[in-house]
C-alpha cells in the first residue's frame, strides 16, 4: 500500500481532530457534574437573594458555598479513574475558585458599590468570563459558549430588568450552569 503525501496529511489531520474531540469529551465529562451542582446552588442562592434582605445574603450563601465545596470534593473522590483529570485537578480547581472569590471580594472592597445590584451581577459576569477564557485557552468550545451565554444574558438583565436581577441571575447564571452541565454530558 503506497500512501501519498496528501493522503498522509489527511490521515494526520483526521488523527489530530479525533484526539482533540476525545480530549474535549473527557474534559466535559469531568466538568459536567460540577456545573450541575454549582448551577443548582447558584439558582437557590440568587433566588434566596430575591426574597431575603441584603443584610441576610451572607447567611443565604454561606451554607451553599460549604455544600458546594463539600459536594465538589465528594464528586472528585467518586469519579472513576481516568475521569478525575490530571493529578491535583480538584485542588487546582479549588485554588482557582478561592482566587476568583478573593478577586471579587477585593473589587467590592476597593470600589464599594453604592447599591445591591453590582453584588448580584459581578460574580455572574466573572464566572462568564472565566468559562469563556478557559474554553478558549483549553480548546473546549462548549465552555466558551456557556461563558458567553452567562455573560451576555446577565448583562441583558442588568440593562433591561434591574428590579428582577436576583431572579434573573438565578435563572440565567444558575440555570445556565445546570443546562451547560447537561449539555457537556452529551458527546
Amino acid at each position: 500500500m503506497a500512501i501519498s503525501p496528501t493522503q498522509a496529511a489527511a490521515a494526520l489531520d483526521e488523527i489530530e481532530a479525533t484526539e482533540q474531540r476525545t480530549r474535549a469529551a473527557g474534559g466535559y465529562a469531568i466538568a459536567s457534574p460540577y456545573l450541575i451542582l454549582w448551577g443548582v446552588l447558584w439558582t437557590i442562592g440568587y433566588a434566596g437573594c430575591a426574597f431575603a434582605p441584603p443584610a441576610r445574603w451572607g447567611l443565604v450563601w454561606l451554607p451553599l458555598v460549604l455544600i458546594g465545596a463539600g459536594g465538589s470534593a465528594w464528586l472528585g473522590g467518586r469519579a472513576p479513574k481516568g475521569r478525575r483529570g490530571e493529578g491535583g485537578a480538584l485542588a487546582r480547581s479549588m485554588a482557582m475558585a478561592a482566587a476568583i472569590g478573593a478577586f471579587i471580594g477585593a473589587v467590592y472592597y476597593v470600589f464599594r458599590p453604592a447599591g445591591t445590584l453590582p453584588y448580584l451581577v459581578f460574580p455572574a459576569l466573572i464566572v462568564g468570563l472565566v468559562y469563556t477564557l478557559a474554553g478558549t485557552v483549553a480548546r473546549l468550545p462548549r465552555f466558551a459558549w456557556i461563558g458567553v451565554a452567562i455573560f451576555v444574558l446577565t448583562m441583558a438583565g442588568y440593562v433591561a430588568l434591574p428590579d428582577w436581577m436576583a431572579l434573573w441571575t438565578a435563572a440565567v447564571a444558575g440555570g445556565g450552569l445546570v443546562l451547560g452541565g447537561l449539555w457537556l454530558r452529551r458527546v
Binding site: 483526521e14 488523527i15 479525533t18 484526539e19 474531540r21 476525545t22 473527557g26 472513576p80 481516568g82 475521569r83
Partner: peptide, 14 residues
Amino acid sequence: LRIMAALHAARGGE
C-alpha cells in the same frame, strides 16, 4: 484510524 486515535487519546482511563 479514528478509533485508534480516540482510544490512544483516552488511554490510561477505564
